[in-house]
Structures are given as C-alpha cells and as structure tokens.
Design a protein around this nucleic acid. Structure first.
Length: 581
RNA sequence: GCACCCGUAGCUCAGUGGAUAGAGCAGCGGUUUUCUAAACCGUUGGUCCCAGGUUCGAAUCCUGGCGGGUGCACCA
C-alpha cells in the first residue's frame, strides 16, 4: 500500500538526488503538533549541495507541488515539514483499519519463514513463581507479533525435566512412604514440598545427596519403576502449568523437555568429537573455548552424566532439523547470557552456519528482598519467592473489591476481576524495556494506578460501551460495529477536533509500532503504544460527545476503529481486551 | 580477574542518531444533571552518572572511568 511517506519521497526525489527509499528512511514525525504531519531533515544534504540546511529547506519548499493529500509544505529549522489534509488522513487511516479489521498491521515480511520461540520453560515438580511471568509473557507477545508479520511461529516450552533434582524427588517420595497408589492424589504443592523436605533432611543426613544421585542414575539407565514415577511427576506438573497458562491465555505448540534429548546424547557427543572439539579435563569432557575468551563448556561430568548445555546443543540441532527455522529465539533471563554465548560458539565451531539464527533474547532479573534487606535474584529452588498463582489471586481479590465498589451492576464480576488482575500484572511486566531489572514488592506489584493495565483496559471498555449504547438507543441487537460496513457515507471532514486528530494520528502508527517491537524483540514499544491509543481515546471521549451529536456517524466510526486498534494492541501484548469493568 | 545488563525529574520509567528531553506516581490547582471519573485539564520539578571521541547534529554510537545488578566445571 502506498503511504504518505512514499508520496512525499516521490515528490522530493527529483529535487534531492536521493532515491525514494533513502527519503522514506529519512522522513520522521515532527515532535510538535503544529509543525506538520511528516518532516524531512535537510541536514544530510548540506554538504552535498554546499548550502545551509534552512536554505535547502526553503528552496525545496518552493519546488514541491502540493496536491489534494499533501496540502502544505513548510520549511522550519532546517526541516521540510509536510501537512496532510486532515480529512484525507482520516479517510486513509480509518479506512485501512475498517478494511483490515482484526488483521490491522499485518505484514508479509516473514512470509515463508519460521521462527522458533523458547520461553517460560520452568522446572518440573515446582510451582510457577512470580518471576516466571515475565519471560512467559514476553515470549507470548513475541509469538503474536511474529505471527502478525507473517512468520510461522513454533512455541516451545523447554521443560526442565531432567537432572539430579528428580533423583531427589524420587528419594523423598519413597522415603515418606508414598507409593504408586498415592500418585492419583498427588498435587504440585506436595511435589514442591518434597524438595523442601529433602533440603532440610539432607542437612542432617548428607548420604541423601548420594542416594539422590544414585536414584537419578537409575532413572537415566531406564529403571522402569523410576521412569514411571518420573512420568507421573511430569504429568502432575503439566496439569498445573496448563491451569495457570489458561489464566494467562498462553499456549505452546510443544512441551518437549530436556529428557527428550537423552537419546540424542550419543550422536551429539559423536558429532562434537568428530569436529575435534571434545577434550578430557579432570575426568570430565569439555569443549575448551579459551581461544574465544569464554570459559570451558562441560559436556559430561566425571560420573558420565551429560549436562544442561549438552542437551541444549542437541535441542538446537533437533529444532533446526525439525522446523527448519529462520530464527530460533531463547527468551531466558539475562543471568544466562554466558550459557547462550557458549551454546552459540559451540554451534559455530561445530560448523553450523545457522548458529547466527540462534539468538538469546534476555530479560532483566526479577529481584526479591533478601533476609539482610538487600535485593537478590529470586530462586524457586530455595523456595524464596512468591508463587505466581498467589500473586494472581491477590490481584484478583483486590480488583474484585474495586469492581464491587465502582460497578456493582456488572455481571460476571469474578471473571472480570481475573481478566483485569491478569491484565494489570502482565502490563506492568511489559511496559518497560525487557532488560531492566525488576524489584518485586507485593504492594508495587498490586498497585495499578496511572499508566497501567486497568488504564488501557478502561479505554477499551469505554469505546465498547459507546458502541453498545449506540445500538441500544436505536433498538438494534448487540453492539454497533460501524467499521464493518465500510467507509461509504462517512464524511471524514467532520472529525476536525484536536482530540479526534490526535487519536487518528495515534491509530495510524500501529503498523510501525509492530515493526519497532519486532526489530527490538521486545513487546515494550507495543505496550507503550497501548498507552498512546488509550490516552487518545480517553481524551476524545471526554471532549467530544458521540451519541446525539451532529457528527454521530463519523464519531462512531472513529470509536469503532479505535476499539479495533486498541483491542488488537492489547491482544498482542497479552492483556485481555475486556468490554466491561 | 573475565563476561552480560542497567544508570534520564523526589520515586518508577518512556525516549536509542534529529527540532524546545516526555509520561505516571508524589505535590499544588481545577473539571461530572450527559456515552464507565479506573477519566479529563492545568501546574511545580532535569549536570540525561563523569570524561574524551565520531558526526552537520549525541540522552542515543565508540573508547575510558565511576556506581549498581547478575553470572563464570561436575545444578538447570
């Protein structure tokens, strides 16, 4: 589709000696309303033309012929500012939204390409902690953003389901006198508790650690009974995970965990040995990366067992073979950046040119208060963290109280409270750049004032409410959806108010924002954009009465387009676009 | 010692090569007989950590410091 930038570039190209592509790249948005709709900075031309930028801008302004869309060209401070006819801008922006509907902002940049996303990936037998929310929701949002750009998306939950920990679980399970017949009544809470019990018991009886290692060895060697217990523990974990993911509306295409790659270990080790990468060191087998200024990678322990990174190497190869990905992104906290540097280097040294497609998408740590009052990385292992389900429940409780107070008539308060609570938590995770560290405090996590999930949801609710009232007033069933009927009969010149214009401008940015978020592999720009639309919508609704006004038809059309764009934005970041609150 | 990340208003943060650096919270002052006030409008508040460099132009890129967080072989 031809954009205003394209049109401006065509007007400028003959006079600047630049290609239309270069000009489109250079065009920016003026910082101040009133300066125009688009700006072309003349500074880079100064050297070539040997003239001062303001003089170039003034000269170009005289050479550009305006037309029905581009109605004014004005030089200012070395910029050439372009003014678009407001009615034309509205027709084009709202027309695109009405036409594309839920697909607004879709592109074909990823057509025929596949992206594999690895995110959430908790450990089996443990409950999800609050800090798991961040990676889970960043990955969820990136999946939706890539899908909108035309990519085929494969969402993988790389469950941590292998390692000595599961030896501990089995040891404790049997030590507590539990048997297979007790598995049906087993819950994630009880599994989680077994870890804690183990840690405490091991302090008094160090031999337990050996027992755990031995149990894990039996597990690895395929002991039928132990494998049965392991599988049961995994099933219990998956049931609980899916219960929480359902609250968050998060889904995965694959729950293949680490254990799956056990069978791949011999051939992976052979492959690396074949490349002459494997070296014996202190009884273990390693890849020496000293030449690359990285610490060595341990592939196999003294006892012969493989490690996390060995299985990750196998998993990367498996993913390339299975999905033929063009990108493979690991949404994992920044604490593991060294691990991913090592993984990437080993893949490179093993001769896989596609190692460049493998990328760590790190996010900042969620820090919790330590006993001495400082801040430290939250650890599920030591049990020092708040459970995600408890935080969600806390948010839901709090919101429920607010709904009872503000909207006692609302139907389905319980469900709404959940959607608002989840929206608030998710929004606060995504509204900041992903690499920032976050300090978890109950009060702050449950504080939803200002630029928050409820603020953006409330804007969506108000838009929906007007469309609902419009239908009621006319005696039509259901909420009105005027955008579905197309632009016929809409007089776009009837939206001249600054609030309407500001909202339309905000709506026009949607496709660019999706691109920005994708380039950064960060949902943050999309969350910030939700605030922009919400602010525009709140302001328009506050200042321009819709129902009963002389411009009712046009204003309803704008309201519906704003509803579509905001609803899509919320969906892309994983905040429920609710219609009532 | 090495590596990754962060440093912008009193606090929490946007802005990541363009014009006079923006929000929310906190503070101060307003707005509702009318479509959800979980809203809107005004106002106070800045050495963009420091020093060099690149550039027509730097909060943004590079180098070096300072401060903070995290990680660095038998866990995942």
């Amino acid at each position: 589709m031809r954009t205003y930038k394209d049109e401006i570039a065509e007007l400028l190209a003959p006079h600047t000696g630049l290609s239309t592509q270069e000009i489109v790249q250079a065009i920016t948005l003026p910082q101040h309303i009133g300066h125009g709709d688009f700006a072309f900075p003349c500074f880079p031309l100064a050297k070539k033309l040997r003239k001062a930028p303001p003089a170039i801008a003034a000269e170009l302004a005289g050479l550009i012929a305006t037309n029905a869309s581009i109605v004014k060209v004005e030089p200012l401070n070395g910029y050439l500012n372009f003014f678009i006819d407001p009615a034309d801008f509205a027709r084009r922006t709202l027309g695109a939204i009405a036409e594309q509907g839920a697909a607004y902002g879709s592109t074909t940049r990823g057509q025929g390409k596949t992206v594999v996303l690895d995110y959430s990936s908790p450990n089996m037998g443990k409950e999800l902690a609050f800090h798991h929310l961040r990676g889970t929701m960043i990955g969820n949002s990136l999946g939706k953003l890539y899908a909108r750009a035309g990519y085929k998306v494969v969402r993988i939950n790389h469950l941590g389901d292998w390692g000595t920990s599961y030896g501990k679980l089995i040891v404790m399970f049997l030590r507590e006198g539990l048997r297979e017949s007790d598995l049906a009544a087993m819950t994630i809470e009880r599994l989680n508790a077994l870890y804690t019990t183990f840690a405490n018991a091991a302090k008094d009886d160090p031999s337990l650690e050996d027992q755990a290692r031995e149990a894990f060895q039996r597990l690895e060697s395929g002991d039928a009974r132990y494998r049965g217990l392991w599988q049961a523990f995994k099933d219990i974990t998956l049931r609980e995970l899916q219960r929480i993911y359902a609250f968050l509306d998060v889904e995965f295409d694959s729950y293949i965990g680490e254990a799956y790659f056990l069978d791949h270990m011999p051939k992976t080790m052979d492959l690396l040995a074949g490349k002459d990468l494997v070296k014996a060191s202190q009884g273990a087998e390693i890849v020496d990366l000293a030449q690359h200024n990285l610490p060595p990678v341990m592939l196999r322990k003294t006892d012969g067992a493989t490690l996390y990174i060995t299985r990750d190497i196998a998993a990367a190869i498996y993913r390339k073979e299975t999905y033929g990905f063009d990108k493979c992104l690991y949404v994992v906290d920044n604490g593991q950046s060294l691990h991913f540097q090592q993984l990437n280097k080993v893949l490179e040294l093993a001769g896989f040119a596609w190692h460049k497609q493998v990328e760590h998408v790190p996010f900042g740590l969620v820090l919790i208060k330590s006993e001495d009052g400082g801040w430290e990385k939250g650890k599920t292992r030591s049990g020092q963290s708040s459970l995600l389900k408890d935080v969600i429940e806390g948010a839901r409780e709090k919101i429920l109280g607010i709904i009872r107070e503000k909207n006692p008539e609302a139907a389905g308060k319980e469900g709404l409270a959940m959607q608002i609570g989840v929206g608030a938590l998710v929004f606060s995770e995504l509204k900041n750049r992903r690499l920032n560290d976050i300090r978890f405090e109950w009060d702050k996590a449950l504080s939803f004032e200002g630029d928050s999930g409820p603020y953006v949801q409330n804007a969506h609710v108000r838009l929906c409410s007007i469309l609902r009232k419009s239908a009621e007033k006319a005696g039509r069933p259901g909420p009105d959806r005027p955008a579905q009927a197309g632009t016929a009969g809409i007089e776009f010149a009837k939206l001249p108010e600054p609030q309407a214009q500001a909202l339309i401008r905000a709506l026009s940015l949607f496709p660019d924002k999706v691109g920005t978020a994708l380039e950064a592999n960060d949902p943050c720009p999309m969350a910030q954009y939700a605030l922009e639309i919400a602010e525009g919508a709140h302001s328009f609704i506050h200042n321009c009465r819709v129902l009963g006004s002389a411009e009712e038809k046009e204003r309803l059309f704008l309201i519906d387009c704003a509803r579509i764009a905001l609803g899509q934005t919320l969906d892309l970041i994983g905040v429920p676009p609710i219609e009532e609150m």
